[in-house]
Simulated assay, not measured.
Amino acid sequence: MRIAIVYSSAKSGAWRDALAAELPDAQVDIWQPGYTHAVDFAVGWAPPPQFFAEQPRLRAFLSVGAGVENILSNPKLPAELPIVRVEDAGMGEQMADYCRYEVLRWMQRRDEYAAQQAAALWRPLPAAWRAEWPVGIFGLGVLGRKVATAFASDGFPVNAFSRSNSVGEPNVRLFSEARGVDQFEAFMRATRVLMIFAPLTPETRNKFDRKALQMLPRGAYVINVARGALIVDEALLELLDSGHLHGAALDVFHEEPLPRQHRYWTHPKVSVTPHIAAVTPIVPAARQMAAKIQQLVNDQPITGIVERSRGY
């Protein structure tokens, strides 16, 4: 069995070594242009069209990231080739911590206290309580579900919006597109901190435009750890400028790296991080992928297969 790592990153060697350790009987190579071997499975992200054109024997492509839009949009992607997502592997816990930090920073007014410290000003501000800070999880997949559970366990009121009538989590109020067109607006109006976890699909692209974001209560906040294109930047900035929204923590953007001239860099209500809310841990993810490859070899069912019609 031959496996190719198709990942234009300095981490490709680490992925090769980790996967080879899990599958010692397999030949694991790093794919580069000019590679002539036929492979059975590939692991990576955003493969070039050339790769698929040269690999007629390929049985499955396993993505090292949760998002797969850069694979599905490949013009040479074979119509019947299974695409398999990594499922959590430690990313959910990272995202929960990322969101916890931002919510607690806002709730405890730490930026205001930092400004008071700079001015040598001793002035206690009104206390905040978790019951007053309902969070809203948009996208109840593996990662969104993990964060919803974490915040519910922390004592926050948790709302979650799902496309389907999925099974809810304990202490999570579920809103579902399947239950009616009014569910999205009800979800937004019940939420003080919107957290975006949905995949990028034709249905979710620009989902959070001015009309949608204005459904949030005045003084609400936005956290986006999914994909930048789910938010209309101009709408978010307009509502931050007007005071309708009090803050945003953004880890993903329409264009990455974020252009130096973009207003997000200097906006006083925006926190920018460079797509680091959840970094795929190589060793546990390689272990998961190796298990799935072995199951596929043995004609056993696996989880994480992308439904192309849905885009995730």
Rank of each mutant, 00 (worst) to 15 (best):
F51S: 04
L213H: 13
A186I: 14
A290P: 03
P49H: 06
G34Q: 00
S63C: 12
F138C: 00
L58C: 03
I30H: 00
G219R: 05
L72T: 01
R123W: 03
R310Y: 11
A4I: 00
R260F: 11
A235K: 09
V252G: 04
S242M: 07
Y101T: 11
L174P: 01
R123T: 10
A96L: 02
R308W: 04
N159C: 10
A186W: 12
N165S: 14
D251Q: 06
E93A: 08
G168Y: 07
G90F: 03
Q116K: 04
R287D: 14
V297G: 10
A220V: 09
T204M: 14
L296K: 00
M91Q: 03
P134M: 08
D182Q: 15
R59P: 00
R218M: 14
Q27D: 13
K11C: 10
F151N: 07
L140H: 04
G34N: 04
Y312G: 05
H37N: 14
G13V: 03
T201C: 09
A186K: 15
Q116P: 08
W31I: 07
W45H: 05
L104C: 02
P217G: 06
H267V: 13
P268N: 13
E203D: 15
L72M: 01
A120Y: 11
W31G: 06
Q214K: 14
I302M: 09
W106N: 02
H246S: 15
T280K: 06
L200N: 13
